[in-house]
Amino acid sequence: MTTAGGTPLFLLEFGDIVISFTPYTTSLFILALVFTLLVIASRPERQLDIAFGTDAYMTKEISLSEMRFRRFMAIACGLASMGAVVTGDLFDFCLFTALVGICNVGIVAAVKSRHVQNAAYQYGLVALAATVLLFGGSAMVAATTGTLSLPILATGTLPAVPLAVKAFIVIGVMGEGMAPFYAAKAEMFRAPGAPYVIMCSLSSLLIFLRVIEVVVQL
């Protein structure tokens, strides 16, 4: 059983959802794991605003409860990306991706700044709308091939998934937090609290790399 990500090194079997650690997914998994551990261990930074040409600078005070919530969301985001990169079931992948989107919004929406919250609101709307495409796409894969298991779909014995359905899944993942829709995130990076915001971009990167593998083998 060889998939686009290589021959599985290890299969973790949860009933119909078989989690496959191919060389590709394993490296993504380790990356997500390392960054989640970093988020757990790291201490949040304080943002400094420096006025040019003078010695003046300001430190932004961030409350402990806000930091605690954002750390929780960042860890949840890390767990969701770990799930999304290793899962061997298309529906499961969509669920984890939707969870990544929700956690990304959660990380930034906790910031008590009007500008950041406006950006998070727009991003949340996109993430919400993307779930329809994401799950619609996976439902259409189930209808046109009869299965949702990625290793079975990768064998190539089933009828090909229509191009539009692949596009549904890709744009769904894009909406959950990715490249052309990144503009809102640039605003979010102004948000104080450095180590947690990085989880947004890392999880986007990981699910982007994973969705390529998923769509290639559909």
Binding site: N118, A119, Q122, Y123, L125, V126, A129, A130, G175, P180, F181, Y182, A183, A184, A186, E187
Partner: peptide, 11 residues
């Protein structure tokens, strides 16, 4: 793209 209000129409 830098204006996040354009994000939703684009998507």
């Amino acid at each position: 793209l830098s204006d996040f209000d354009n994000l939703m129409p684009l998507f």
